[in-house]
Amino acid sequence: MTVSKDDLIDFVYDEVRMLDEGRYDDWMALWTADGMYWMPLDWKQADPIHETSLMWEDQFMLRLRIERLKGARTFSQKPKSRCHHVIQRPYVDLIDDEAGKYVVTTQMHYVETRLDDQFLLAVTARHDLVLQDGALKIAQKRVDILNCDAAFGNIQLLP
């Protein structure tokens, strides 16, 4: 099976739309069983494990994050946050049909709001995708925040 450039670009657009619309069960289905979500703390950080990252989350952690948002006693989500992605057309960096591996890099503006507060993050997302049973899945999503060294308040949803 071959994957076209459009397939990869559409995948990223679909993914951020799920996040913006809060369709988290659909979003969780996009991942491989051992897929990891990485948000580095340091600029150009190379090691997600042996120094602090903002996020380095396996499927258990992501599911916990998603389930928590639905909870009745999730106090920091009373009222709930909303988010909004504006993305640039993704760069398709790698198409390797033989290995079933693909890499896409996307520049995004991520906006999150709750009550009277709203903030903007300029982020670069790198998707490492694999083909599993005829469908593209996320093996790793790396989200680099332009001002990763700044002090943030709560970032509660997912860029």
């Binding site: 948000m39 703390l41 494990i49 042996h50 120094e51 602090t52 990252s53 903002l54 996020m55 380095w56 952690m61 916990l64 994050r65 928590r68 999730t74 106090f75 920091s76 989500q77 002090a151 943030f152 308040g153 709560n154 970032i155 509660q156």
Partner: peptide, 28 residues
């Protein structure tokens, strides 16, 4: 190295601005 990996894990899981534990502390 596994020890520093656990240390880094604790830091991000509990005390990051992206931590689902930290969020509720800050809310309080």
């Amino acid at each position: 190295d596994q020890l520093v990996a656990r240390t880094a894990m604790y830091n991000r899981m509990i005390n990051a601005p992206t931590s689902i534990v930290g969020h509720d502390d800050l809310e309080m």
